[in-house]
Each structure stands twice: as C-alpha cells, then as structure tokens.
Design a binder for these strands. Structure first.
Lengths: 111, 111
DNA sequence: GCATCATCCGCATAGCCGCACGGATATCGG
DNA sequence: CCGATATCCGTGCGGCTATGCGGATGATGC
C-alpha cells in the first residue's frame, strides 16, 4: 500500500528543503513571530528577537526566496508577513507544536 | 499571554537542534523508514534508501547520539528502531504530515 | 584458527550557510 | 536639495557537517 512506501530521495530532498528553512534559530523565530503578530517590519523584528538587522534581513531574504513570506512596502518601511500559500501543516504542526515542545523539553534536559 | 510570547534564542536553539536532525534527506528517510517498518538493520536500510552503508551508519550514529533511535545487537547484525522517548509531535506532525506534504507539493511548483 | 561478513570508528576533505561589512537605493522631513 | 533613515544587495569569511576511505572490532561458518 502507498502508505508504507518509503520516500524517494527526491521526496526526501523536497521535505528537507522546507524543513531546513526552519532548522535555523533566526528563521524559526522569525516565522513564529510572523505567525503570532501577522505583520512586522525588519527593525521591529530585530528588536523583538535581539538579532542584528542584517541577520533579520538575510533570514527574511531566504524565506522570501523560498516563497514563505511576503513583503509590503509602506514608505521606507517594509512589512513582512507569512505568504498566503504558507503550508498549513508546517504552520500548525511545526511552528506551533514544536515551539510548544521546545518549551517543555525532555525532563532530564534540565539545567 | 504566554501564547503570544516569542520564543527566546535558547528555545529557538532547542527547536532548531531537533528540527535540523530531520533537515537532512538521509536522516529524514531513515526516521520515516523506522516509523513505518519499526525495526531494520543497517544493510537493509542502505538498500531500501539507495544510500551507502557508511552514510546510513553515520546518520544513525547522529540520531542515536541525539537519543532518537535505539539499537539492538543480534549476532553481528545491528537492528535499529525509534527510541521509546521519540517525541510524538515530531513523529506525527513532521514525519507523517510533512512526508505527505512533500508528495503533493504546491501546484505551481511544476516541472 | 582462519577467512568472511556486518558494522563501527577516526580522520580528512569538500561543500554549504549564516552573518558581518561596505556600499547602494529609496523615502522622508525640512 | 540635503541629510537622515530603513532596508536591500553582493561579497567574503569562519564554522559546521555529510560523506568517503582505511582500518579496527566482533560474530559466524567451517
């Protein structure tokens, strides 16, 4: 049955390409922030995440190239938000579930 | 409210560390195979995924170090399976949902 | 005991990636 | 028109990592 078919190398790459976008602290936090607040500009994101504006800009550039975020210019300020086509599974299951998980980690992982 | 709190850098790292384990084609396919078949040895995994045994061995070593898979020796053959403490969200939401997603990608992603 | 096999390990290498830096562009206030 | 501001872009570098290779280890069959 198809449900037991193993993913091909190509499917593995496709999965990986989207997951590796979240497998970076800056990008993951950027996406989560945009999931929560809906629309934010670069400067505010930099302050909110305590990251340099360059790092934020670079992270957003990568996400934009991948089509995961959209930008809207208003004067000299650029507002970012999640793209309309942002994959729902990624949003619900990775952004929210996994962020939740990373807050209550395995117990013997304490300080 | 806590639900709107943005993840700290540390939480971002924790999330990233587990996600980056899946953000590699070999490891993702290894995990999915073990999710489906339950227990497999290195050689069979190499054949099933069309990867060198060394690559499989390395991938499993990384996953084992992270505590995501367990091994059981029987003679000279080593069988691997997902660890008991394998995070359920990761299993359900990433392994299955995302593999499913990578099979039916966004339609304008043609050719 | 010896040849064989499955697997692991250490090491070296090559490729990728996130980020800082310097400069460019566009917009705003006056 | 001018300086300040917000952001983008190209480039370069340091660090990480997946992988291949040679050798070691332990089990098996005879």
């Amino acid at each position: 049955m198809a449900r037991e078919r193993l993913p091909s190398a190509e499917e593995g790459d496709r999965l990986t390409s989207v997951l590796s976008l979240m497998a970076d602290p800056t990008r993951a936090r950027l996406l989560y922030a945009l999931d929560v607040v809906e629309e934010l500009c670069v400067g505010d994101l930099a302050i909110a995440l305590s990251v340099s504006e360059d790092a934020v800009s670079y992270g957003l550039r990568v996400l934009r190239t991948a089509g995961l975020v959209r930008r809207r210019k208003e004067g000299r300020i650029v507002y970012y938000r999640l793209a309309e086509g942002f994959p729902e599974p990624l949003r619900q299951h990775c952004l929210r579930q996994l962020i939740e998980m990373s807050r209550a980690p395995i117990e013997d992982d304490d300080v």
